[in-house]
Structure formats: C-alpha cells, structure tokens
C-alpha cells in the first residue's frame, strides 16, 4: 500500500522539478529583484513606483483596453458557443477546427498580419480608397490594439464557454420549456446561470494575457502607446533596470491574483477550464 503511494508520488517528480525550476524559483527571483535596489539593499520603491503618473497612466490604459477586449470577446464568443452547442457533430468539429486553425500559426506572425491589414497603405486602406470611402490608418490607435487582442485571445473565451454549454443537460432545458418558459427565459434563467463557470474562466483567460501584453501594443500601437506590459518590458530590455521591472511585475501580479481568486470562487468544480 505504502509502496504504491510512493510510486504515485514518483510520477509527479518531473512535474515537481519543472514547477520548482521554472515557476517557483523565477517567481522568487522576481520578488527578490522587486524588493531590492541596485546596491542590493531592501526597498519598497520599486513597488510603490506604480504610483507615479506615467505608470498609473499605463496601468489605467492597460486595464481599460483589456477590459474592453474581454467584453468584446464575451459578446462575440457567447453566441458562437451557442451555435456550436446547437450544431451537429460533424459540423461542430469543423467549426472548432476552423477556430483552432489560426492558433497553429505563430502569434507574432498573426499580429504582423494585422499590421498589414490596418497600416497606412494596407489592405483596409486600399479597400476604403477603392470604394471612395475616407481612408483610415488604425495603427497607432487604441482600437488597433483592442482588435489585435480580441483576435488573438478570442479562442480562449470560446473554448471554456463551449465546454460548459455542451455539458448542460438538454433535459433541463426541455423541462424549463415544459413549465412554460419562453426562449428568453430559458436562456436567462437556465443556460446563463449554468454557463457561469465558463464565463468566469473565459474572462480570466482573456483578461490576464491582454492585461500583460506588450507585443501586440508594440506592433499595432506603433510604439506610441505605452501599456504597463511595455513599460515592464522596457525596464528589462533597454533601460536595464530589472529591479523596477520586477517591482512593477509584482504589482501587476496582484491584479492577476484577484482575477484568479474570482475564478476559483465561481468555478469551484473546474468545469470551465478549457485545456
């Protein structure tokens, strides 16, 4: 009995090594850098630096853009997940396939493609010109960044939603109809509450990466727009100030932890987890 328990633990070994080496130790390093100054002495300055106007501005903008992105994703993904739930098996597989397909391509390449779509002289520009419409160059605007985020993170919203929706027992819906509920009531009183774990999970899966992104904002923001992710990236790369970068990362982690806590509160059974 004891022996088999030990064997089971042994199986977790590689994962444990991985976790410690690539999650726990790096996190500790970030914390160490975040709470020390260049000379190695303890300081809170790197963390409280978030209060400076330029950091607050970047954080505020990041929150606004990632919330917008999450909202748009939810609005787009929910109907799609409903369609998926309702469609036949073969068709379903096809739609999911179409959805996953772009994810086989590198994320940066896909974002570059958006750059080509939206840039001056890009495809959208040419189409508007041909049709005699006023030409717009979206690159360098918040809109472009949100578009890029939505495109990249939409699958992370669709899949958890789809996962919870297919698990809803048809009998529950039929029962509601039998008892006289109209379509709206069925959706509002039955489907929506039951899909709540998926919604929460999808929100987290989209909100967290879009809050921290720097590649999308770099490319589609023409480097004019600084999100908190860009600031942290700059601290590590060009400014060569790992301490400040780590301090700001710790602050950002608080926001991520809050959304994770919300997730575990509403999704106790892990129903909404997609992968």
């Amino acid at each position: 009995m004891n022996k088999s328990a030990f064997h089971k633990k042994l199986l977790a070994g590689p994962y444990l090594v991985w976790m410690i080496g690539f999650t726990v130790i790096p996190l500790l390093l970030i914390a160490w850098y975040g709470f020390t100054a260049r000379d190695g002495s303890f300081t809170l300055e790197n963390v409280t630096a978030i209060r400076t106007p330029e950091h607050l501005k970047a954080l505020g903008l990041s929150l606004a853009l990632s919330l917008t992105c999450t909202g748009v994703c939810l609005l787009l993904a929910y109907p799609l997940a409903m369609i998926l739930k309702g469609s036949g098996l073969g068709k379903k597989g096809f739609i999911v396939f179409i959805f996953i397909l772009p994810m086989w391509m590198n994320f940066l390449l896909r974002t570059y493609a958006w750059l080509n779509l939206l840039d001056d002289g890009g495809i959208l520009f040419q189409i508007c010109k041909r049709l005699g419409l006023p030409t717009v160059s979206l690159v360098g605007t918040n809109t472009a960044i949100v578009l890029g985020m939505v495109y990249n993170y939409l699958p992370f919203m669709v899949l958890p939603l789809y996962n919870v929706l297919v698990k809803i027992d048809e009998n529950v819906i039929n029962a509601a109809r039998d008892l006289g509920a109209n379509s709206f009531q069925v959706f509002y009183k039955v489907i929506l509450p039951l899909s709540f774990p998926g919604i929460v999970s999808g929100i987290t899966m989209v909100f967290v990466p879009s809050l921290t992104t720097f590649a999308i904002s770099d490319l589609l923001g023409a480097r004019k727009i600084l999100l908190i992710g860009n600031i942290i990236e700059q601290e590590f790369s060009t400014a060569n100030n790992w301490h400040l970068g780590s301090g700001l990362s710790l602050v950002l982690m608080v926001f991520i932890l809050i959304s994770m806590a919300a997730l575990s509160h509403y999704d106790k059974n892990g129903e909404g987890t997609s992968f």
Binding site: R38, P53, E54, H55, A58, R223, K224, I225, L226, I231, Q234, E235, T238, A239, N240, N241
Partner: peptide
Amino acid sequence: GEEAEDQYYELWKQVK
C-alpha cells in the same frame, strides 16, 4: 552612469 541613465528612462516614459 547608471543613475543618470535611470533618470533618462524615467523621463522617457513620461513622453509617450
């Protein structure tokens, strides 16, 4: 020097 470079970066972030 490091201190002056930090100062430059601090100001640079306020530009954009």
